[in-house]
Each structure stands twice: as C-alpha cells, then as structure tokens.
C-alpha cells in the first residue's frame, strides 16, 4: 500500500514562494495564471496495512508530524502498489 500525501499552505497563510512563481509564470507569458500555492508531496509505503485502518494511520501521521495544522492542510490517497518495494 502506498500513501500519497499532499501538504499545502492553509488559505490565509502567506505563500511568498507561490507568489514569486506566479510572477515568473506571468513574465513567461502565461497570462492565465492566477494563484499559485506551493506545498509538499510525500510518499509513504505501508507494510501489511490496508483499507480503512491504513487510512486512519496515515491521517494520524499527518496530524502528528507530516503537516503542521497551524499553517498547513493535508489530503492523501492510498493506492495498492502490489506490495512492491522501492
């Protein structure tokens, strides 16, 4: 099982990195670009866990460590990768 976790800055939290990238995209002629927010993508491989239980564990990991909920939101999906080890 593979958990794909996305951590993004909360609305209202200044994201100067996103702002700078938006400006750069404008400078490159991508006039359609609006807001850009930059976060993190984290992959966690889970051994022997599945379904609801695995999702609950991943949520706990996010709440306890992977995201700081004062400034960040998180969402995740779990996909079956056939037990493949990287």
């Amino acid at each position: 099982m593979l958990a794909k976790i996305y951590v993004t800055p909360k609305r209202g939290v200044l994201d100067p990195q996103g702002k700078a990238v938006a400006q750069a995209l404008h400078a490159l002629g991508f006039a359609e670009v609006g807001d850009v927010r930059i976060g993190k993508y984290i992959e966690v491989r889970l051994e022997g866990a599945a379904g609801e239980e695995a999702a609950g564990r991943v949520r706990e990991m996010c709440e306890k460590l992977l995201a700081n909920q004062v400034i960040e939101d998180f969402r995740f999906e779990t996909v079956d990768d056939g037990g493949k080890r990287s």
């Binding site: 800055p9 939290v13 200044l14 100067p16 990195q17 700078a20 700081n68 004062v70 400034i71």
Partner: peptide, 17 residues
C-alpha cells in the same frame, strides 16, 4: 517550541524569500 505546542502559532518562510 511552536512545533512542540508549547507556544502558539508557527514560523513560516520570510516574505522576502
């Protein structure tokens, strides 16, 4: 101390980057 929850709030990237 903020990350440990002993103080409120958080410190994020400087606005100037």
């Amino acid at each position: 101390l903020c990350e440990a929850g002993l103080l409120p709030g958080a410190l994020v990237r400087n606005r100037s980057l």
